[in-house]
Design a protein around this nucleic acid. Structure first.
Lengths: 377, 377
DNA sequence: TGAACTTCGTTAGGAAGTTAACTAACGAAG
DNA sequence: CTTCGTTAGTTAACTTCCTAACGAAGTTCA
């Protein structure tokens, strides 16, 4: 019989822990959830009855009685994460313990196909509990947990194109792609074990994902970390202009600057940031200088962040931010201008956004289980 | 008999609520603490036994039986707040419900006297539970809850001069003065009812107090909001320098700029910011232009904050920041550069720092009661 | 093989909090 | 002055968790 009733509090807590670690014995669950053994036993029994957990083996710790191992059950369901990137659309379907169940990757124009493909690969019997869509845009603050749309026109059309492929009745969360990537760095990247840090992404544009106490900071307009609106240029006799910063520190500007100082004798001028970094890594001269200058610019951007937030750690990402050869220059400029702050390069790269969106979707999905599975509330 | 044992959890919750509202009936405590009537009755009995609460009257709500009103008891004790300001030292002693018990205000050089004076005026029988000292300096992160010192030499000597007057055995917390003032705006000023905002103080220096979810954001080095380290000047061909921003937007710069463009015919050049603002308020010309330019500069500073945090509300304070005639100019520049953000002037002024420090001290003091009065742990 | 040890899981009793129902106190209306 | 409606506070039964102790199921060593 299908028990759609709500879980007790302890069962919810145990389920949340079980989803986090994937599989565990009862004593492990007890210590992780901060509950006693009898309570965990009762909770596990309840979860097994609801098919939210299953006995998946035994574990012997050398000496003593061997413990029963439990994992997520068939009824725990799955979640979907969609990254509407500038070039490609990436989709992942995950179980609530984060294991990958389905994956799709298409050009941006075939976004809806990617979603359908991934949905088809998910187990049919169990509920899809949450969908997170990462967009390169400011998202309105999360009110009812669904029905959001990107705040400006930038990502609106793509989102609409995808949303027709989304199954009805499942809560959809929009999230900024930089925030998602920051979450990925937090859980499986360069910021593992941290509670507070900033993820500074520099590519065509610039963006900052802020994590404080393990939580993403979204801001009143969902625009926290939208560094493009930092006042720039800024001086006694210069008026800041909107968007001027991205035009100056973004990847387009980097290549333009390279082209300006490039000469015949230097060989062919690089047309991509990757090529430019490769030349610089070999010590080839105009490239090295351009990259060094870029590092200082990134350091200034980082200084603007530390002046406000003092996060203690900044993770650099993006097509022109993640290269480790930037690190010395960035650190030097940041040291010169601001507070002691660790600076490291992203460990995840392009897949960070989907990975983070999946983390977020898993968290939302677990919530729907523990807080009483309200699909239509 | 003195019961030094720990309170039950429900009694602690009830005490915290009682401290927040000052006095309340049992039904009020029940709804505010989210507890049931029987539990509150038991908790109140426990608190009365420990002299942490007393029956202080009855309240009739027109119809029905009249309820007993409870307030804080004699054993709840007091806390001390010290503001080591640039010119004056202000001290307040408060009960745990925030009522003022003692106050002192001396020139900075007699700081220790102010502390002794206020301490003498506090009730002798009950414990002093916490001391908060507000300094104009970066404070190291709060580890054991005491034993901190200002991070740089700026406020170190003053703090040492005061600390000799502090009674031993009482936990001392250092806090940045701008953070304190932000807390005052949150609880009794322009940000009442908000959960997230920024308090931008502009005087001789610039500083930002960040409140997120009702909590002050301190940062990894205790330097969150130290805007003086924003990169400035910043442009393609200018190198940012440390401290350059304060030299440009602080009150000294404001008066210097006024002096530069002032002419014989304009009358005597103002020597204080107050005087300059007064002239501007009358529409007198060179003053008005200087103030308008200052407003734009403040707007840019605010834009730098919103670009990172998007707080939704910015409260302006400080000797050259709180004047309401700045508001239109600040709002215009902020609108032009950044996200929709409310901008208002501080409602508290110079006393904000002590008031906020007192709030913080009360919160810490309540903690010592509810978490088991550990004075030396 | 069986005693000793260690770890797992259950059983029993108790602490802390909840809901529901009852008694107590107060004002107003007849 | 009594009665009724309303609100305060208490008592009782039940829920949910914890701690402590015990039985069950392994491993190790003689």
């Amino acid at each position: 019989m299908a028990e759609a009733s709500r879980l007790t509090e302890s069962a919810g807590a145990v389920f949340a822990v079980l989803a986090q670690v994937g599989s565990a014995t009862r004593p492990q669950l007890a210590s992780l959830a901060g509950l006693s053994k009898p309570t965990v036993s009762a909770a596990v029994a309840e979860l097994e009855g609801a098919r939210l957990a299953t006995h998946s083996g035994t574990s012997s710790s050398g000496t003593g009685r061997s413990a029963a191992v439990y994992g997520l059950g068939a009824a725990s369901g799955s979640v979907l994460a969609v990254d509407l990137g500038p070039a490609r659309t990436r989709v992942r379907g995950c179980a609530l313990d984060g294991t990958l169940l389905a994956e799709a990757d298409t050009p941006r124009t075939r976004a809806a196909d990617a979603v359908r493909e991934a949905l088809a690969a998910l187990p049919a019997g169990a509920p899809l509990r949450a969908i997170v869509v990462a967009v390169g845009d400011v998202t309105a603050p999360d009110r009812a947990g669904s029905g959001m749309r990107p705040a400006t026109a930038k990502a609106g059309p793509v989102f609409d194109a995808v949303s027709v492929a989304l199954p009805p009745g499942v809560p959809v969360h929009l999230e900024n792609n930089v925030n998602c990537a920051a979450l990925a760095e937090l859980h499986e990247g360069a910021a593992r074990g941290r509670r507070t840090f900033g993820y500074l992404r520099i590519g065509v544009g610039v963006g900052l994902g802020i994590v404080i106490g393990g939580q993403v900071l979204r801001g009143a307009n969902g625009a926290a970390g939208e560094l493009a609106r930092l006042p720039y240029p800024w001086d006694d006799d210069r008026e800041p202009r909107q968007e001027a910063l991205e035009a100056y520190v973004g990847s387009h500007a980097l290549l333009r600057r390279a082209a300006e100082i490039w000469r015949e004798a230097d060989g062919p001028c690089p047309r991509t940031a990757d090529r430019l970094f490769a030349l610089a890594a070999q010590g080839r001269e105009p490239a090295r200088a351009v990259v060094a200058r870029h590092a200082a610019d990134v350091g200034r951007l980082a200084a603007a962040v530390t002046a406000v937030l003092d996060p203690g750690l900044i993770v650099l990402g993006g097509s022109t931010g993640a290269d480790p050869q930037l690190l010395p220059g960035v650190r030097a400029e940041l040291d010169r201008l601001s507070w002691p702050t660790e600076v490291v390069s992203s460990q995840i790269g392009d897949l960070g956004t989907v990975a983070g969106a999946a983390r977020l979707a898993v968290a939302k999905g677990v919530q729907t289980v523990t807080e009483g599975a309200r699909v239509k509330d």
